[in-house]
Simulated assay, not measured.
Amino acid sequence: MLCIPIKEFLFWKKKQLSKGGDQQSFILLLDCLGGLSACDQNILNINPEGNLYLKKNLDFLESVWEDHLLKSNPIQHLCGVAFWRNLKLKVTNKVLIPRPETELIIDIVLKIFGENSQKLLFAELGTGSGAISIALSLAYPLWDGIATDIDKDVLEIATENYNNSFSQSNLKFSCGHWWNPLESFKGKLDLAISNPPYIPEDTYERLPKEVKNFEPKIALLGGDDGLKHIREIIQKAPFYLKDKGWLILENHYDQGEKVKQLLLKNKFTSIEIVNDLSGIGRFTIGRYK
């Protein structure tokens, strides 16, 4: 641990932020690589006297910050960590960095099923870092879950994140394309969730370079209209869901009505487009028959 005066640190911090970037990314950098929690960082501004201890020296932290600024490399990849709800997740360039807006999926589930639900079976298709399934397993320890992904390397990351989160064993991981790993669960699922690739081809080409150049294309691109994977998931969902089972999908900001029509066409009811905190129709949910 390196000891430096707090005033020197605060002067250095101000200098780094003047170069650009956002404060939340800088907080993550100091937390993950510097060993200075967000709470401790706030306290320093209130009481700038004395010394503090860092895991890495300022020159190293500055070099990482400049890598982030100059190359648009996501700070989560440089730190190897993303914070999501109450989880600290390992991330690499093989998995999509979990977005804050996706956290609302857990709130949607809580609204549908309540907080003290009976034992249920859920599946997440395309789990990536495992964020959604891990959060649900924590919220509902009586539930059983299966999280799928097409990439074995991604599933290893998700499994590691799950094992690091808590010691229960109510979540399993299975490799394969969307519903394929769930053949033995046909007609048994109470809930299926997916945040699939939904970016249309022309929109993908215009994505910010920190997304397009560093995050996996397979986790973003949803075909010409962005609905390629959503369409497949909805069409096959009736074979896997119980009657009255729920399907929750995240979609692009302008796809809600189209996803709603797909759900209606496949005999879903209780369909609702749910806005995110920015008022955008980010999620479309439905109940099978």
Rank of each mutant, 00 (worst) to 15 (best):
M1A: 15
M1L: 12
L2G: 03
L2D: 01
L2C: 08
C3G: 03
I6Y: 09
K7D: 14
L10H: 02
L10V: 05
F11I: 15
W12S: 12
W12D: 10
K14E: 15
K15C: 08
Q16K: 02
K19R: 07
K19T: 01
F26A: 02
L29M: 03
L29C: 03
L30A: 02
G34V: 06
G35Q: 03
C39G: 10
D40I: 00
I43E: 14
I46G: 03
P48S: 08
E49R: 12
E49D: 14
G50M: 05
N51S: 14
N51R: 11
L52K: 00
L54R: 08
K56T: 04
L58V: 04
D59W: 00
F60D: 05
F60Q: 04
S63Q: 03
E66Y: 07
E66G: 02
H68K: 12
Q76M: 04
C79N: 06
W84F: 09
L87K: 04
K88C: 08
K90I: 02
T92Q: 02
T92H: 01
K94V: 01
L96N: 06
E101F: 10
E103H: 09
I106S: 10
I108W: 10
K111I: 05
I112R: 13
I112S: 10
I112H: 12
G114Y: 04
N116S: 15
N116M: 10
Q118V: 14
K119D: 08
L121E: 04
F122I: 08
A123F: 10
G126E: 00
S129H: 06
I132Q: 06
I132G: 07
S133H: 06
S133L: 07
L136F: 11
L136M: 12
S137W: 05
L138E: 15
A139K: 15
A139T: 15
L142W: 06
D144G: 12
A147P: 13
K152F: 13
E156V: 04
E156S: 14
N161C: 13
N163L: 15
Q168K: 10
N170E: 00
F173G: 06
S174V: 00
W179R: 08
L182K: 13
L182Q: 07
S184M: 12
K186D: 11
K188F: 11
D190L: 07
L191M: 06
L191H: 01
A192T: 14
N195D: 07
P196F: 04
P197D: 02
Y198T: 02
Y198L: 00
E201F: 11
D202R: 11
D202M: 13
E205P: 03
E205W: 07
R206T: 15
R206P: 00
R206G: 05
P208W: 07
V211T: 09
N213F: 13
G222M: 09
G222Q: 08
G223Q: 11
G226S: 05
H229L: 04
H229N: 11
R231W: 00
A237I: 05
Y240C: 10
D243E: 15
W246M: 06
L249H: 04
Y253D: 10
Y253C: 11
K258N: 12
K260E: 15
K260R: 12
L262D: 02
L264R: 13
F268P: 04
S270T: 08
S270H: 15
I271Q: 05
E272T: 14
V274E: 13
L277M: 12
L277F: 11
G279F: 00
R282A: 04
F283H: 08
I285G: 01
G286Y: 07
R287G: 04
